[in-house]
Design a protein around this nucleic acid. Structure first.
Lengths: 203, 203
DNA sequence: GTCTATAGGTAGATAGAC
DNA sequence: GTCTATCTACCTATAGAC
């Protein structure tokens, strides 16, 4: 079972684009990484932009459905928060360059990104989680917090440590092994942190 | 009191570099934005990389001392956390493109970034805050939490909402005014969130 | 489908007049 | 200090043989 030329290209392109960004990526380098030549690259993907969009959308399509599955599941609030953080960080541990890549590119082309993301089949959908938060707060089972801020807080704590890795390691003086130890311990740490933050003080 | 040509260039370069990134930025566009021509650009800054580094380091030098001043001040834990978040977000509100720019560039050139940041006069210095956290936890005045994780949590909640703005607005369907309302309300919201998360349950 | 060779355009950098 | 003109290199994309 061979790996098709198209998949070899997509794999190589993912590597180069995520590490260098669209503008600095070179078609030659992608061809080299895929073990083919530039001509063949244009045979499969008419131009650089089309190849980039394939990589970019593949990344989102692998990501969004997985977290949505947790967000839309029939789980208690605590289970859902723990499940979301676990799933989200699991995907990022396997794709550690994804956050900086997506953040960088979408800020360099915000209007194209917005058009493009809104036309996708699936968007991140935190609505059910936010409704649950509101209900639990109304029922007095958790502290009353802004669902939108809480959602932003959860995503921030999951995503930023990947994107800020070079600064974090430099400032803290930690090596790669220590970084990954820290990241692995984060799933539980962030979950506990959030559950404590929304605990009702009257319990 | 005129603005010097060099400052006009730096200002224009900051705009173009922070929005397009190093690789996609064009010397021609910077020259146009500064109201001069390409030749003069090379007269003041020998090449593109030197111009970029001036912008990049100016950004960090404007940023790091301001937050360090709070981090190293003689304040109670609660005041320090509130002060840090307030100062950090205040700077970012005035430079909203900075986070995605810095995150993107440092991930595209991690080794150069690491060399460069370590040779700067001043690094972000959360040590005193982290010692305070440890002491308060040992004294039982706050819940025992990992200082390193807490530090990462605070920074994450401050920084990511700027870098993730296009995704956030698209997914939530909110306009620019609503986005800025949200961001302005975040200083207090994040501070409260953290203070609740580290509250000691036995109080 | 896969390759080589090259066209065509663009951008960083320099030379030199004023 | 500031400008115009130009050189040189590189990179995307295409043409065309196999």
């Amino acid at each position: 079972m061979e790996i098709s030329t198209e998949d070899k290209i997509l794999l190589a392109a993912k590597e180069v684009f995520t590490q260098k960004g669209y503008a600095a990526a070179r078609m030659q380098e992608i061809a080299d990484a895929a073990g083919i030549n530039k001509g063949l690259l244009h045979y499969y993907f008419k131009n650089k932009e089309k190849l980039f969009l394939s990589v970019f959308h593949d990344a989102l399509d692998n990501f969004i459905p997985r977290v949505n599955q947790v967000l839309e599941a029939d789980l208690s609030l605590e289970e859902k928060i723990a499940g979301f953080i676990g799933e989200y960080m699991e995907v990022l541990i396997k794709n550690p360059h994804l956050p900086a890549f997506v953040l960088g590119e979408m800020n360099q082309h915000p209007q194209e990104f917005t058009r493009s993301i809104l036309s996708r089949k699936e968007l991140p959908n935190p609505m059910k989680l936010m409704m649950q938060l509101q209900m639990e707060a109304d029922a007095g089972r958790i502290r009353s917090v802004s669902p939108l801020h809480l959602w932003m807080n959860i995503v921030s704590m999951c995503v930023l440590p990947f994107a800020a890795r070079p600064m974090f390691q430099a400032v803290m003086g930690i090596n790669d092994a220590q970084y990954w130890d820290f990241m692995r311990s984060r799933k539980k740490e962030v979950t506990d942190f959030i559950l404590h933050a929304i605990r009702n003080e009257n319990n």
